[in-house]
Nucleic acid binder design. Structure first.
Length: 287
DNA sequence: CGCTTCGGCTT
DNA sequence: AAGCCGAAGCG
């Protein structure tokens, strides 16, 4: 069973006579005809396919040419003129949901505070085997110091990975993207790396980061010779000083190292571009 | 417009 | 299963 209204997108079916490429086309309004025998009341299934109810208005507002997104859609309820930004939002509205405008968010889980909780937590895969093929692949592709961020999805059990270059403060979505970047390939408007946001202190930006997120730092060949970490999980454990806590396999990272990493991590995310420290063997070895 | 998440397709 | 990536959803 596939959800969503597949891509039956009601773009103005090539009936637009002007085939100008350079100018931004004007918004197009499509009024969905009301079926003669349209039922007064419509049952709206909470999940599954859902399409624009009869009589509703769809406005397609094209974006500037070359934009990574072709157009934005706006929907209007016929009687009230109430505007909606998406079909799911309309469905929520018709279902009588109070907060129909925004997607329902997963409840915040209580931050993890203890080792026991950490081990019990499903997504903080500390127990991952360190030397899997995947891990080796990461190490071989990603330059020293790069970070892999794994973001569990709100729904379902999948995750999205991001590859972060802390020095340039860029974020990529796949290894091929990273490789293209490293090769100095041009990137088109699409496929442009994302800039790392400045999440330095305070309010909204921090709030939106409360959820438990697992980070892995990919092995850095400079990270010492005796017992180099293949991977570190950074576990966000609530607000306060000791917020990001690195774990290697099961055990805590020695304090000195931890400090260096934390420093590098935080500065990489928030600091001035020119002040990002590089971890070097000499800094670490003395430990 | 830009970012996050979803979801289909590929590997 | 995991990864890639287009695109929906929405701030």
């Amino acid at each position: 069973m596939t959800t969503c209204s597949d891509s039956d997108n009601a773009y103005a079916a090539n009936s637009s006579p002007s085939t100008n490429e350079t100018t931004t086309p004007a918004p197009i309004q499509i009024i969905k005809p009301r079926a003669a025998d349209a039922r007064r009341m419509q049952i709206v299934p909470a999940a599954g396919p859902f399409e624009l109810p009869d009589g509703w208005i769809l406005e397609v507002r094209p974006r500037a040419p070359g934009s990574s997104v072709k157009a934005d859609k706006y929907y209007y309820e016929p009687e009230t003129g109430r505007q909606f930004r998406s079909l799911p939002s309309i469905r929520r509205y018709l279902n009588g949901e109070e907060e129909y405008k925004t997607m329902p968010r997963q409840k915040h889980r209580r931050p993890i505070r203890t080792m026991d909780e950490l081990e019990a937590a499903p997504q903080t895969n500390i127990k991952d085997k360190v030397s899997s093929n995947a891990q080796n692949k990461l190490s071989s592709i990603l330059p020293d110091g790069w970070i892999v961020k794994k973001v569990p999805r709100k729904l379902g059990c999948r995750s999205d990975r991001y590859f972060i270059d802390p020095v340039n403060r860029l974020k990529f979505r796949s290894l091929p993207e990273v490789q293209r970047f490293l090769k100095g390939e041009e990137y088109s408007r699409k496929r442009k790396p994302m800039k790392l946001i400045d999440c330095s202190v305070h309010q909204e930006s921090l709030d939106s980061r409360k959820e438990n997120t697992s980070f892995e730092i990919v092995k850095d060949s400079n990270f010492g010779t005796s017992n180099p970490p293949e991977k570190v999980n950074w576990v966000f454990s609530g607000l306060g000083e000791d917020t990001w806590r690195p774990f290697i396999q099961e055990s805590m990272v020695p304090d000195r190292l931890k400090e260096l990493w934390a420093e590098s991590f935080v500065l990489g995310m928030t600091g001035r571009r020119d002040s990002v420290p590089r971890l070097t063997k000499t800094e670490i070895d003395p430990a």
